[in-house]
């Protein structure tokens, strides 16, 4: 499988402060890779290094098989799109004029503007000045700009942090369309539901290192203690352990016809995360 991002022993110090200590991972072409971690764990820092905005202190980072420091050539810049907290828009221009500028910079026909605005549900606001937009609308406009030029690789730093559920869902559909077309997505998020919905694999970044990296499904299985949640007719809720003891108890309740429902007690990504980091995602 072709790897579009390769990171080896990556470290980044701000002064003496280690934002990243020893980070290793690879992102396969076409996958949606979730980069999760508590606030301040270095997610944005990693994106800045990968897009050539920030120098690493040590280690290797390759994107499109290029060291990230040499990504400043036009031919590579066309191949990736970025949304981070420093992807500003021009306040005094309309959404359309903002996107038109980037159409010209990336040699993209202006008719593409309508497509991307549809994807972010802003097609009716394109004549609005950016300074008049709500936070969520601004975020969607930035998102539209990030994939305006149909990049092969898309870096999205908390793309839905300001969005309502309906708009988030609309964006998820759009992002899935992009992945179908072969786009690779590097996504950071604090929203575990988003990570489970979108990501083929997720990495947990904590204390400067990747603590876990796998498919969400496999992680849930790995951290499942195979216990069962059982609701009884008398209203009691039981948590039965896996193994013979649980099985015996379950058998007895079922025999007595007291069971309303049985649920597996699989952990969510959020549970796993809290288990590893010992803290909630903020």
């Amino acid at each position: 499988m072709e790897q579009i991002i390769k990171v080896k022993s990556l470290a980044k110090f701000f002064g003496n402060y280690p934002a990243l200590e020893d980070v290793h991972f690879e992102v396969n072409k076409g996958e949606t890779f979730g980069f999760l971690g508590p606030s301040g764990s270095g997610k944005t820092t990693t994106i800045k290094i990968l897009t050539g905005q920030l120098l690493a202190t040590s280690g290797d980072a390759f994107v499109f098989n290029q060291p990230t420091a040499s990504l400043n050539k036009a031919k590579y810049r066309r191949k990736f799109g970025v949304l981070t907290d420093n992807s500003g828009l021009y306040d005094r221009l309309t959404i359309y004029d903002n996107l038109k500028l980037f159409c010209d910079l990336y040699d993209v026909p202006a008719k593409r503007i309508n497509n991307v605005l549809e994807m972010v549900n802003l097609e009716n606001e394109q004549k609005k000045m950016v300074s008049k937009l709500s936070k969520g609308m601004k975020q969607r406009a930035q998102l539209a700009r990030a994939f305006l030029h149909e990049p092969e690789l898309l870096f999205l730093d908390e793309p839905t942090s300001a969005l309502d559920p309906a708009n988030s869902k609309h964006i998820y559909d759009g992002l899935r369309e992009l992945t179908k077309g072969g786009t690779t997505i590097f996504l950071t998020t604090h929203d575990m539901h988003e990570a489970e919905t979108l990501c083929d694999r997720v990495a947990f970044l904590h204390k400067g290192k990747i603590q876990l990296l796998d498919e969400p499904k496999k992680l849930r299985r790995q951290f499942s203690d195979s216990s069962l949640q059982v609701l009884l007719k008398d209203g009691r809720e039981l948590l039965l352990p896996g193994g013979p003891n649980g099985a015996k108890a379950l058998y007895e309740h079922m025999q007595a016809d007291k069971v309303v429902s049985i649920h597996s007690n699989e952990p969510t990504l959020g549970d796993i995360f809290v288990g590893i980091t010992g803290r909630e995602l903020v």
Partner: peptide, 14 residues
């Protein structure tokens, strides 16, 4: 100030 210079620099514009 408005973080727009980065957008230009990350584009193919030299």
């Amino acid at each position: 100030e408005k973080n727009t210079l980065r957008g230009l620099m990350l584009s193919p514009a030299t």
